[in-house]
Amino acid sequence: MTARARRTNRERRGESQERILDAAEALFARSGFNGVSTKDIGQAADVDPSLLHYYFDTKAGLYLAVIARRAGYVNTVRRQALESYAADAGPGISVAGVVRTYVESTFELARQGDEGYLSYLTVIAQMNSTPAGGIPGLEGTPFDEVVQLFVDLLRRASPASNDADLYWFYHMLSGAITLSWARTGRIDKLSNGQCRSTDFEAIADHMIAVFSHGLDR
Rank of each mutant, 00 (worst) to 15 (best):
L51G: 00
Y102P: 00
W168D: 12
T76V: 02
L121F: 15
R186C: 02
E15P: 00
S191Y: 09
E83S: 13
E139Q: 14
A45M: 02
Q126Y: 04
I203F: 07
G134L: 11
R111W: 00
H206A: 13
K189G: 01
Q80I: 00
W168H: 12
P131Y: 09
F200C: 10
D57W: 08
G185V: 03
A204E: 04
A96D: 08
S37G: 10
D165M: 12
Q194R: 15
D152A: 13
S197F: 02
G185E: 08
N9A: 14
E18G: 02
L62W: 05
T106K: 02
L51Q: 11
A29Y: 01
V95G: 04
G113A: 05
G116F: 01
H53A: 11
D40H: 08
A5G: 00
T178C: 10
Y120Q: 12
G32V: 10
K39Q: 14
D216C: 01
E108H: 14
L215M: 09
R186A: 14
T58I: 02
R6M: 12
Q148C: 12
D144T: 15
G97M: 02
G35I: 05
V95I: 07
V77K: 11
N75A: 06
V210R: 11
R30D: 14
N75P: 01
G185T: 04
A202F: 06
G140I: 10
F211A: 07
A202D: 12
A44F: 05
S119Q: 05
M207Q: 15
L27C: 03
A60F: 04
A81Q: 09
Y170A: 08
G61E: 07
G133K: 09
D165C: 05
S105V: 02
H171R: 14
R10W: 06
G35E: 07
H213I: 01
L173Y: 10
F33W: 11
G35M: 03
I67E: 12
G92M: 11
S161M: 10
R79S: 11
A157M: 09
V98R: 03
G134I: 07
V210L: 13
T141K: 06
Q80M: 10
F169T: 07
N162K: 06
M207E: 12
S31H: 14
G137T: 09
T178L: 03
F150T: 06
S197N: 02
E25S: 15
I124E: 11
Y54M: 11
R111T: 03
E115D: 12
